[in-house]
Write a protein that binds this DNA or RNA. Structure first.
Length: 490
RNA sequence: GAGCCGCUAACUCAAUGGUAGAGUAUCUGCCUUUUAAGCAGAAAGCUACAGGUUCGAAUCCUGUGCGGCUCACCA
């Protein structure tokens, strides 16, 4: 800890003076009859003439002292309430105790009667008060709030104290997660939990974090997806399962990437990717309606309508429309690479054909997909866990969906042919050997599970943080994650 | 990983080579219905850190740290 500032020294001295009065500045219990909002509601119900006495608690957010009377605002979890202290109510000694030893940021409990001030604000006329917790560090500035983004992220509590809009964003986030759960629960999906520490990672194309178990002398990976475990549960006989939890990917940080992020995945036996598109539209529209009361939202200045139906176009067509490149016209990686370069794009020279197509989508198409859009039918090379189209073995029954220029999620008809799956893993192994660090590793136990037999199944995944960005109109993922990853300061 | 921008009092910001300032918060007075309360006064800084140039550096140069944006990376 750095040495205490003068302001902190002053507050510490006040805490000591309080102790010398025989008062604990951090008492263990408190009397509370109403939240601040309950007090306001009770007053409005009771009628102005009733003597309504309440005990309310909260953090001192502002103090206006005018000689022998003082107005202040306290904030609790429900909102704010004004309190009013008068020397002729409290006595000189007690009044001066407040004036001298209470600071902005302190938690205070007050008991008094409610009244309405001359300017109309419902206010507690304080009969007695007590210190609930002394604050030693000064609050951010009351008018401009806390703006420094680094401080806001590193000391999120200060951000939440100072910036009500930030507090609201995270309340909305919680409501979004609740609405997602309600949606799936009401359709018979079973919420489950699967391992975060995994001996083999998989289910996505990403580099993992590695950790070590001391007793087992074993390397473990933090999961990059839930996919392979959830499909094992479908093998086991559950027909509808989902999980909401944290994924970890060892890759760059950006406005839409945090190393740990919240994912929702569900698996649905006897359904296919067409059913998933229908359910996706319904889910997102339902969540928006429940959380925001509308399906029409504004994201970064764009008006977006989330109600079904959404646009559905093949990936091939989307790339063709945006770039003029029909990747089907280029049967090998060399010719496709040349086409991308002719368009003015940069691409990895040694990439496979599939690995050329995917960045083309990301770089040139994704940002244009403002209204909700499904892009469907992806190249098989970049989709090792998805089922091939019956009439076209070079493509799989897979879609990604985009809103506000953000990739929100990914889904497909699951590959349940264990022989085909093994073949795909072997191809991924070759890709890894050729330098693709994100190639999917072989998972023998997963193959064994498929050999037991998995019914036709559709699987789906979505970034909950990105959905929250969309529904709270935040441009950075750090503003929807309470404690986003930052580099350590020494 | 690269480029650009930023880091000044607890907070929000000024000061572009010549004595580091303001508002809020704090402290001291005055003030019993205020609400960004008001009035008067005071205190508060290793200008992120380390070097360099200069008679003189918050300011110019180099390096380091952290952050933001853009790019790269990234289902």
């Amino acid at each position: 800890m750095s040495p205490l500032s003068d302001l902190e020294q002053q507050r510490l001295a006040k805490a000591e003076r309080i102790r010398q009065r025989g008062i604990d500045p951090y008492p263990p219990r408190v009397k509370r009859t109403h939240t601040t909002q309950e007090a306001i509601v009770a007053f409005e119900k009771a009628g102005e003439d009733d003597e309504l006495t309440v005990s309310v608690v909260g953090r001192l957010m502002s103090v206006r002292t005018m000689g022998r009377s003082t107005f202040a605002h306290i904030a609790d979890g429900s909102g704010r309430l004004q309190i009013y202290l008068r020397q002729d109510d409290l006595g000189q000694e007690t009044y001066e105790f407040f004036d001298r030893d209470f600071d902005l940021g302190d938690f205070i409990g007050v008991t008094g009667t409610l009244f309405r001030t001359r300017t109309g604000e419902i206010t507690v006329r304080v009969q007695n008060f007590e210190m609930l917790a002394k604050s030693l560090h000064p609050l951010p500035e009351k008018w401009h709030g806390l703006k420094d983004v680094e401080t806001r992220y590193r000391h999120r509590y200060a951000d939440l104290i100072a910036n009500e809009d930030v507090r609201q964003v995270f309340i909305t986030r919680t409501r979004i997660v609740s609405a997602l759960r309600r949606f799936l629960d009401s359709r018979g999906f079973l919420e489950v939990e699967t391992p975060i520490l995994q001996p083999i990672y998989g289910g996505a194309a990403a580099r993992p974090f590695v950790t070590y178990h001391n007793q087992l002398h074993q390397n473990l990976f933090l999961r990059i997806s839930f996919e392979l475990y959830l499909k094992r549960l479908i093998v086991g006989g559950y027909e509808r399962v989902y999980e909401i939890g944290r994924d970890f990917r060892n890759e760059g940080v950006s406005y839409k990437h945090n190393p740990e992020f919240t994912q929702l995945e569900f698996y649905w036996a006897y359904a296919d990717y067409n059913d998933l598109m229908d359910l996706t539209e319904e889910m997102i529209a339902t969540v928006a309606q429940e959380v925001l009361g509308t399906t029409r939202i504004t994201y970064q200045g764009h008006e977006i309508e989330l109600a079904p139906p959404w646009r559905r176009i093949p990936l091939r067509q989307a790339i063709l429309e945006e770039t003029g490149i029909d990747y089907e016209a280029y049967p090998d990686a060399e010719s496709l690479l040349q086409a991308i370069r002719n368009y003015g794009g940069a691409a990895e020279p040694k990439a496979t054909r599939g690995k050329l197509i995917d960045p083309t989508l990301t770089n040139y198409v994704e940002a244009k997909l403002i209204q909700p859009t499904f892009l469907y039918d992806y190249p098989v090379e970049v989709s090792p866990l998805a089922k091939k189209k019956p009439d076209d073995p070079t493509h799989v029954e897979r879609f990604e969906f985009f809103i506000g220029g953000l990739e929100m999620g990914n889904a497909f008809t699951e590959l349940n042919d264990p022989v085909d799956q093994e073949q795909r893993f072997l191809e991924q192994r070759q890709a890894y050997a050729a330098g693709d660090e994100e190639a999917h590793p072989m998972d023998e136990d997963f193959l064994l599970a498929l050999r037991y037999g998995m019914p036709p199944t559709a699987g789906w995944g979505m970034g909950v943080d990105r959905l929250t960005m969309l529904l709270t109109d935040q441009s950075s993922i750090r503003d929807v994650i309470l404690f986003p990853h930052l580099r350590s300061k020494d």
